[in-house]
């Protein structure tokens, strides 16, 4: 039996900032069509790992394969890394969409403008064609009626849904989320998590750095628990969260009782 190739394969990935190493040789495979949640205490390296996958940070050593293609660097026969040409980097990157904690919508463009920008500027579509595709993505996140609004006229939850539509417009194979609900009021997190849940149901490959333990436990098919720059635990939530639990994970969950961890810790 051959297993399907992983969407992302990470080998011995290290990342240092100056003298400080934040990722100590991460080995991780992200399954295609599944939602993988990266959890862990602050400073555990989960956001850095995600940013390396998005190629917003360049890993110090190690390799990342995205859909089988090397991202950014290629390992040569002698084991040294070679930086790939910019065109190849962009090609591999175009299969990945990214959603940020701070939304990062461009304030001088409407919701539709944000979604269609890359379609027009990068892919060279006509305004009309881009507009139609952009509207389809806004419909997908339930914001068709807000297409002409500027980011400053939208709520945080709406802005994040526009940001998701912007990432979806390029039809990526993989979506990365960096704490997508961390800057939202609690009553607005639901609308964003629902959109993400729908995407997961549609079979999108998603990697989600999150503090929403409840979301991770119910939507995530795979939980990766990072601690001090290493993958400490990696498995389906039912397995990981069920007792007997790793003591480090229990300790972590106890600090997240208000984010849905309480139900996991409750005695049966």
């Amino acid at each position: 039996m051959t297993l399907p190739a992983p969407a992302i394969a990470i080998r011995r990935l290290c990342k240092s900032y100056g003298q400080t190493e934040v990722l100590h040789g991460i080995d991780l495979e992200i399954a295609r069509g599944a939602t993988t949640c990266l959890i862990g205490p602050s400073g555990s390296g989960k956001s850095t790992l995600l940013r390396c996958i998005a190629f917003l940070e360049e890993a110090t050593s190690g390799t990342i394969l995205v859909n089988g293609q090397p991202l950014g660097f290629e390992e040569q026969a002698d084991g040294r890394r070679r930086r790939l040409p910019q065109a190849r980097i962009r090609e591999v990157r175009s299969g990945i969409g990214m959603v940020f904690q701070q939304f990062n919508l461009w304030p001088h463009m409407t919701a539709l403008g944000n979604v269609t920008e890359a379609l027009v500027t990068v892919q060279g579509l006509s305004r009309r064609e881009a507009g139609e595709r952009g509207m389809a993505q806004l419909r997908r996140v339930g914001l068709e009626a807000r297409a002409r609004h500027y980011p400053s006229e939208l709520s945080g939850g709406q802005q994040q849904r526009v940001a998701i539509a912007r990432a979806l417009a390029l039809e990526p194979k993989i979506l990365l989320f960096d704490e997508p609900t961390a800057s939202l009021d609690p009553e607005l997190t639901g609308e964003v998590l629902n959109v993400m849940r729908d995407l997961g149901d549609e079979g999108m490959t998603m990697v989600v750095v999150t503090h929403e333990i409840g979301f991770a436990a119910t939507v995530g098919q795979r939980i990766v628990f990072l601690d001090h720059g290493r993958v400490l635990l990696n498995g389906p939530p039912a397995e990981l969260f069920a007792p007997p639990r790793h003591p480090r994970l229990t300790q972590f969950l106890e600090t997240y009782l208000d984010r849905g961890a309480a139900m996991l810790l409750k005695p049966a």
């Binding site: 998005a54 917003l56 962009r90 990157r93 175009s94 990945i96 969409g97 990214m98 940020f100 701070q102 990062n104 919508l105 461009w106 920008e117 890359a118 500027t121 990068v122 940001a163 912007r166 990432a167 417009a169 390029l170």
Partner: peptide, 22 residues
Amino acid sequence: PRGHVEAAQCVGLSRAQIVRRI
């Protein structure tokens, strides 16, 4: 904000396009 530039990088805008458009 750095994030606005990163968002542009993520959707594939080139350096010159980021300067001009963002």
